[in-house]
């Protein structure tokens, strides 16, 4: 279990993370979304012990992370800016990883390299940006980590590769209760892969939820009546947003879908449609309710 307790990270006078607390249980695939400068990379670097917080605690299974090899050997980090040894090939990097991580699995390395269609003997400088990202991902996955951290890695992989990586992660989650923390710019990216999602903005987590719950917690209802009505008619329902054009109203409702439909049917509407919301729409309305303008946050 990863736990941060009121972690604060400053760079000079700039506060990158402000008393951030969160708990990531084992076996979770945790997605972190946020705009540039929100603090996603800083968060990952704190959790992996690259940075030391000004205040607060960062622990994995209750053991502090910073400068603690006993904890660090259990996880691997794929950063946004990749680094390889000068003139190294994937094979050379694999040797480095083998000596650093006792759990490095050479068979997995060879299988993944073959599946991704990469040449392990070639100088990595000759790889395209996408291929470098694939190489870094393969090396990281081959360490058989308990925790794997991806900093916007998926944003640079093509759909086929993304699927392959997802499946390896799923397999590790099933076999070893491995935990993955993935940051991204794109909700769409994370929606399919993660089971928990958090929104980071200006150094704090302002929203965190189970993805499946997010999708069922809010829904859209389109309703029309042949009489005059206004928002008051729906007093018994938790309406987050109400837009009326002519006789048709669009409501964003929080609550139980079936109960809401039954209630509305009893009012004898001439139109009643229930529509699901995309994850992005759910975020927009939830943020709106919290007083934030979502469009300012995600680019």
């Amino acid at each position: 279990m990863i736990k941060t307790e009121k972690a604060t990270k400053k760079f000079g006078s700039f506060t990158a993370l402000n008393e951030l607390s969160c708990t990531i249980p084992d076996g979770c695939i945790y997605g972190l979304v946020g705009s540039n400068g929100a603090g996603k990379s800083t968060f990952l670097r704190l959790v992996t012990g690259i940075y030391k917080p000004e205040s607060g605690k960062i622990t994995i299974d209750d053991k502090p992370v910073y400068e603690n090899p006993e904890v660090k050997k259990r996880f691997v980090f794929v950063p946004d800016e990749l680094y390889f040894l000068p003139q190294a090939s994937m094979q050379r990097m694999a040797r480095l990883y083998e000596h650093t991580y006792a759990s490095f699995n050479i068979e997995r390395f060879q299988n993944l390299t073959k599946t991704f269609g990469l040449d392990p003997k070639v100088n990595l400088n000759g790889f395209s940006k996408g291929m470098k990202r694939q190489a870094a991902t393969i090396l990281a996955l081959s360490t058989m980590p308990d925790y794997i951290f991806f900093d916007e890695t998926f944003d640079g992989l093509d759909p086929v590769m993304r699927n392959l990586v997802k499946n390896v992660i799923y397999s590790d989650v099933c076999e070893r209760k491995a935990t993955a923390v993935i940051t991204s710019h794109s909700l769409r990216e994370l929606e399919d892969t993660c089971d928990q999602l958090a929104l980071l903005h200006k150094g704090g987590i302002i929203f965190e939820s189970d993805i499946e719950n997010l999708k069922t917690s809010l829904f859209k209802v389109q309703v029309a009546f042949d009489k005059e009505y206004d928002k008051e008619l729906f007093k018994g329902i938790d309406v987050m947003n109400f837009v009326k054009k002519g006789s048709v109203a669009n409501l964003i409702v929080r609550g139980n879908r079936e109960k809401t439909i039954t209630l509305l049917q009893q009012m004898n509407p001439i139109v009643l449609d229930v529509l699901p919301l995309t994850l992005e729409e759910v975020f927009i309305y939830e943020m709106d309710a919290l007083g934030y303008a979502f469009k300012d946050m995600i680019i």
């Binding site: 076996g27 979770c28 695939i29 699927n163 997802k166 499946n167 799923y170 397999s171 989650v173 099933c174 076999e175 399919d192 892969t193 993660c194 089971d195 499946e212």
Partner: peptide, 17 residues
């Protein structure tokens, strides 16, 4: 859970749920 997760490419936690 594992076989379904890999077959459908769906998060195993979702299947577990």
């Amino acid at each position: 859970v594992r076989s379904l997760s890999l077959d459908l490419s769906v998060n195993p936690n979702t299947i577990q749920k």
